[in-house]
Amino acid sequence: MKKTITPFFILIFLLLTIQYGYGQNLNKEEIQAIANNLLITNKYHVSIKKIVPPVNGIQVVVLSIPYREFPGIIIINKNKSTGKWERVFESLSPGIQDKSSGLLDWHTKGEGVDFMIDKMSMCNFSDKRIKTVVETSIKKNGVIIIPYQHFIHMNTVNATSPGFAPYTIDKTEYFDFANTLFDNLYSGYPKNECTMFDTPGIRDCEFTSANNLYKIKVTTDSNQIWTYTFEGIDAKNQYLLNKKIAVAKGM
């Protein structure tokens, strides 16, 4: 007897195929599209340097750095309810250097400003006031806001970047990190603006998980070792939970 496949079974097969594919790992083209949406102007290009294998539905990606205050690492999290991959609002920028990298500083274009909240002398990334300021970039979607230890950096988004999706970077310990890495040299530098906080490239990145703790270990081109540990990602897909950062000079 000749067997036939009814339209009903074809429809079920297609639905299952689409649902399965929706939750698969991202390919390089999809990750590149996510990275492109970080750019505040289409005059610059970002490339993928390394796609680290995902761990428990969390993907770490190393990027080239086209200009200052751009993240060297983004984290993409798989939504457990929908299976959709979504970039985490908080990104990472491992590495500090006081020598010029040649990367564009947006202050020189009149599109960057460093400021401080009234009656605050230091920033803490978990402070509700800092989070409120940082998250205005999500609502306005036209600025980047990055808190440092003694000031907050902000620069505007160029109108030629219609697909821009905001991000932030926690730099609230960078003054102390800089002194650790450069033997207290930064104590003699201005601490209320970002001139001396340039960024090296990333040489390598590892991402692991053990005992309910995630670890991202980064080696910069300048041989600094940056280690990030965190317990997961918050329900809004904005921040790394209980994140800690350790820095050291490489051998």
Rank of each mutant, 00 (worst) to 15 (best):
S121N: 13
I145E: 07
K215G: 00
M1V: 12
Y189E: 13
M196F: 14
M122C: 10
I144K: 10
K28Q: 15
A210V: 12
N179T: 12
T160F: 12
K171G: 09
S101A: 08
P190H: 02
A159K: 15
P200R: 00
Y20I: 10
F177H: 13
S47R: 02
I225H: 10
L213M: 14
S209A: 11
I10A: 11
T132H: 12
G21N: 15
S64W: 01
Y20C: 11
R129Q: 14
A246V: 13
E231L: 09
K80I: 09
F115M: 11
N77G: 00
Y148L: 05
T108L: 13
N212W: 09
V133F: 00
V55M: 04
S126F: 13
I74F: 01
V46L: 03
I145N: 09
G201M: 02
K78F: 00
Q238V: 01
F164C: 06
Q32T: 06
P53D: 00
M116P: 00
K217M: 10
I65F: 05
N77P: 04
S64P: 07
K217T: 15
C123Y: 12
N42P: 01
F175E: 09
D204A: 13
Y167S: 04
T199L: 10
N212A: 10
K171E: 12
A246K: 11
I76R: 00
I130D: 05
T219W: 07
V88Y: 03
P94W: 02
N237A: 06
V88G: 08
I144T: 09
V247A: 03
L14F: 12
S187Y: 07
S137R: 03
T6D: 12
T168Q: 01
T156R: 08
I18T: 13
S91Q: 13
I152W: 00
I10T: 11
L15E: 03
I138S: 06
Y67P: 03
G142K: 10
T136R: 12
K140S: 15
C194R: 12
E193I: 07
Q97G: 14
H150K: 15
L63Y: 03
Y186Q: 06
I138T: 03
M251F: 15
Q32M: 06
G23Q: 02
T195W: 10
Y214S: 06
S101L: 07
I65S: 05
I75R: 00
G232I: 01
L39W: 04
Q59A: 01
V247L: 04
Y174F: 15
K80D: 09
A246M: 09
S161V: 08
L63S: 03
A178M: 06
Y67T: 06
Y174T: 10
F9V: 09
V133D: 05
T227W: 07
M120K: 15
T156Y: 03
T220I: 08
M120Y: 14
F89C: 04
N155A: 07
D114H: 06
I58N: 00
P94L: 08
I202T: 06
A165V: 14
I96D: 03
F207G: 01
F8W: 09
N79F: 01
T82N: 02
K128A: 14
R68Q: 13
T82C: 03
E29F: 02
H45R: 13
Q59C: 02
